[in-house]
Amino acid sequence: MAAYFRMSDLGALSYYLGIEVRQGKDELMLGQSAYASKLLERSGMAECKSCVTPMEERLKPKKASTTAKVDATLYRSIVGGLRYLVHMRLDIAFAVGYVSRFIEDPRKDHWATVKQLLRYVKGMVDQGIIFPRTGGSRL
């Protein structure tokens, strides 16, 4: 039996793999605001206050921390979500790479650093990458 597939026009792309696509007359914007909001909810920080920096300036958490252990599964889940968020949010790339170092044995001070990063994400949830159109219909 032969299978027949019918193609249909679904319109302009607006959402794909957690990435929102907004197409305007003069620009194309890629963002992950819905994904970031879900990540904040999953971490229990949906109602947190925002901040303006992803990390404290002279922060030096170490792998050999002596603070109390935290839930490793939750830590790994949230840091993994932040790693996916980096695709459209290059401003958090360094901080996410930094907190990723502690995935093996997360401690309370490591979690505090992740929470700081999540507060930053909360304040910048609508950020994304903008591609301006440069004459004609080309990007």
Rank of each mutant, 00 (worst) to 15 (best):
T73E: 13
I130K: 00
T53P: 03
Q23H: 10
Q32M: 04
Y120C: 03
L28T: 02
K60D: 09
G44R: 06
V125K: 11
R119H: 13
F102P: 08
Y4A: 13
I92E: 04
K62W: 03
E27F: 11
T66F: 10
V86P: 00
E57C: 09
R101G: 07
L13M: 15
K63Y: 03
R22N: 04
S43Y: 06
G97S: 08
K122M: 12
K122E: 08
M88I: 06
G81I: 04
L39W: 11
A64K: 14
V52Q: 09
D105N: 14
Y16V: 10
R133E: 02
I19V: 14
G31Y: 00
I92R: 05
V125E: 11
V121A: 07
E41P: 02
A112H: 10
R119C: 15
Q116Y: 08
F102C: 07
R58S: 11
Y4D: 11
I92G: 07
K49E: 14
G128K: 01
R6D: 10
M7S: 12
M55P: 05
V121G: 08
I92F: 08
G81L: 03
S77P: 05
D91P: 05
K115I: 07
R58F: 11
F5V: 11
L117E: 04
D105P: 06
R133V: 10
R6K: 14
K69T: 11
V86T: 13
G44D: 04
R89H: 06
L139N: 09
T134H: 12
K115F: 02
A36E: 00
R22V: 01
H87E: 00
G128I: 00
K25F: 06
D26Y: 03
V114G: 06
A64L: 13
L17C: 03
G81Y: 03
D9A: 04
Y4T: 15
L10D: 01
S50G: 08
R101I: 13
S14Y: 01
L59D: 03
D9Y: 13
V99Q: 05
S77V: 05
M7L: 15
A112S: 15
R22F: 00
I129T: 01
F102L: 06
T53Q: 07
C48N: 00
A112W: 03
V114K: 05
K38D: 15
S14M: 01
A93Y: 04
M1R: 12
Y75I: 05
S8V: 15
E20S: 07
T134W: 07
K108S: 13
T53R: 09
M29I: 09
I19G: 00
D71Q: 02
I130D: 00
A3Q: 09
L59S: 09
V70F: 01
V114N: 06
M45P: 04
M124I: 10
T113Q: 05
A12I: 13
S8F: 14
Q127S: 11
D91A: 11
E20G: 05
L39K: 07
G97Y: 07
L17Y: 02
L13C: 08
L90C: 09
L85P: 00
K60H: 14
S8I: 14
V70C: 01
M7H: 08
S14R: 12
D9K: 05
F102H: 08
P132E: 06
Y15A: 02
V79L: 12
M7R: 12
A34F: 00
M1C: 10
K49L: 05
V52H: 10
A34K: 15
